[in-house]
Amino acid sequence: MMQTVDLGIVADRFCSTSRTYLTYLRAAGYRVRLVLLTDFVGPTLPRPGLRGQLDRLVAPFLKQRRRLPERHFDDGFRALCEAMQAVVPHPVDYFGAFDWSEHAEQVLPFVAEDYDDRDLHERLMKAGIPVWLYTNGGRVPPALLDRPDFRMIHIHPGVVPHVRGSDGLFWSLLTRGQPGMSCFYMNPGIDTGSIIRTREFDRPVMPFLKEAIEQRPDVVYSALLYAYDPHLRAQLLADVVDACGGRDLASLPNTPQDPESGRNFYWMHARLQRKAMRLLSDGAP
Results as ranks from 00 to 15, higher is better:
259 P>T: 04
264 N>S: 14
136 N>R: 06
103 H>R: 12
203 R>D: 08
95 F>G: 04
158 G>S: 03
144 L>C: 11
236 L>M: 02
132 W>G: 01
136 N>T: 10
119 D>N: 14
284 A>T: 15
57 L>D: 14
284 A>V: 03
244 C>Q: 06
282 D>I: 09
1 M>T: 07
154 H>C: 15
101 S>N: 10
73 F>N: 01
30 Y>M: 02
98 F>P: 00
227 A>P: 09
174 L>G: 11
129 I>R: 05
3 Q>V: 08
125 M>S: 13
209 L>Y: 11
105 E>T: 08
81 C>Y: 01
273 Q>G: 13
86 A>L: 12
238 A>T: 00
101 S>W: 00
269 H>C: 11
117 D>I: 12
207 P>E: 11
234 A>E: 02
245 G>N: 03
160 V>W: 02
90 H>F: 13
89 P>R: 08
103 H>L: 09
219 V>C: 08
169 L>P: 07
95 F>S: 03
281 S>R: 06
157 P>H: 02
61 F>W: 14
64 Q>M: 12
140 V>R: 03
282 D>V: 10
27 A>P: 07
265 F>E: 11
219 V>Q: 15
130 P>F: 15
107 V>R: 06
164 R>M: 09
235 Q>W: 04
71 R>Q: 11
168 G>M: 13
212 A>Y: 02
279 L>A: 06
202 D>P: 11
106 Q>Y: 02
191 D>A: 10
170 F>Y: 12
149 D>Y: 04
57 L>W: 10
90 H>T: 04
59 A>I: 01
249 L>R: 00
123 R>V: 07
59 A>G: 06
191 D>K: 06
235 Q>R: 12
6 D>M: 12
51 R>V: 14
102 E>P: 04
151 R>I: 07
283 G>T: 03
125 M>H: 12
17 T>K: 05
137 G>L: 07
197 R>F: 08
177 G>A: 03
136 N>E: 13
84 M>F: 06
235 Q>M: 13
45 L>R: 15
18 S>Y: 05
236 L>E: 03
155 I>N: 05
213 I>C: 05
254 N>Q: 10
101 S>V: 06
41 V>P: 09
241 V>P: 00
42 G>R: 09
194 S>K: 05
267 W>D: 15
228 Y>W: 09
